[in-house]
Amino acid sequence: MDKIIICRCEEVDLEEIEQTVNKYGSSARETKLRTRAGMGYCGGRTCRPMIDTILEQLTGEKPKDKIPLKVQPPVRPVSLARLGDKTHHE
């Protein structure tokens, strides 16, 4: 068992991400879209920093000031009922 899981939700391993980046020269976002790493239930909360690090190591580029993988709401898992609930507290 030598597999190193990176994205737990979508079960994407290190080798697959490395191969994708090497084959397509993909950015963090493109890598995410191609492999689904970071697109699971948790919204990339665990693997986001790892994907950034892998990209940094493979491309040799230091992270820029913009967060590589755009953060989008909801930033926590939330039920659809709650998502649609627009009740404002007083």
Partner: peptide, 18 residues
């Protein structure tokens, strides 16, 4: 889980309302 800008300042969306 989300924040929006509003005329009064901010609306903060939580698991217990806005």
């Amino acid at each position: 889980f989300h924040i929006e800008k509003a005329s009064h300042g901010f609306s903060v969306y939580t698991n217990q309302g806005v």
